[in-house]
């Protein structure tokens, strides 16, 4: 081999990834390549300081298998059961109600929902001041409770 290998090939030799006899022999016999090899060894030893002997704790596998065995919460199934329950109970209590829902079609259902929405809106407008007072009182009570909790956490209530 007449031409010197590039620095990445020499690095691969150093890392044990390049096993070509030709390249190895060239590095041994070429002064400049030997110098590159020595420089690269310095870089490798600096990075080797990152290596460690840290090991996973003993209970790691036990915790992992417990998590693997745990079944995920069947949210879809629960939602389907709840829907079915609501639908069936509504039908059993008032069969005509469900039949009406099914008979009016999509536009009828949408206009019904909008009607209810506006009804509720008007009702809230009438009850406006009452809701405002309730909301403000709740906020004040919560703030007092939170401030009190913070004082306990920060130790301001001690002594």
């Amino acid at each position: 081999m007449d031409q010197c290998p590039d620095v990445l090939t020499i690095q691969a030799v150093l890392d044990g990834e390049e096993k070509s006899e030709k390249v190895n022999r060239h590095i041994q016999n070429c002064l400049s390549c030997r110098q590159v090899y020595r420089d690269l060894s310095g870089l490798v030893s600096a990075a080797d300081r990152l290596g460690s002997e840290a090991v996973l704790p003993d209970q790691f596998y036990k915790t992992l298998t417990a998590r693997v065995a745990a079944k995920p919460f069947p949210a879809g199934l629960v939602a389907a059961v709840m829907f079915l329950f609501t639908f069936l109970s509504a039908y059993l209590l008032e069969p005509g109600y469900i039949q009406w829902w099914l008979s009016v079609g999509m536009t009828g259902q949408i206009s019904y929902v909008l009607d209810i929405f506006f009804d509720v809106l008007f009702m809230l407008q009438t009850l406006g001041p009452f809701w405002l007072i309730i909301t403000l009182t709740t906020l004040v009570v919560f703030e007092v409770l939170i401030l009190n909790k913070l004082k306990v956490v920060e130790g301001l209530n001690d002594g």
Binding site: L8, Q11, A12, G42, L43, A46
Partner: peptide
């Protein structure tokens, strides 16, 4: 090639910074 390159440049940067 990209891995070899990044390894070389990374090692060099690490040594110089250290």
């Amino acid at each position: 090639t990209l891995v070899k390159n990044r390894l070389y440049r990374g090692r060099k940067m690490l040594k110089e910074a250290l």
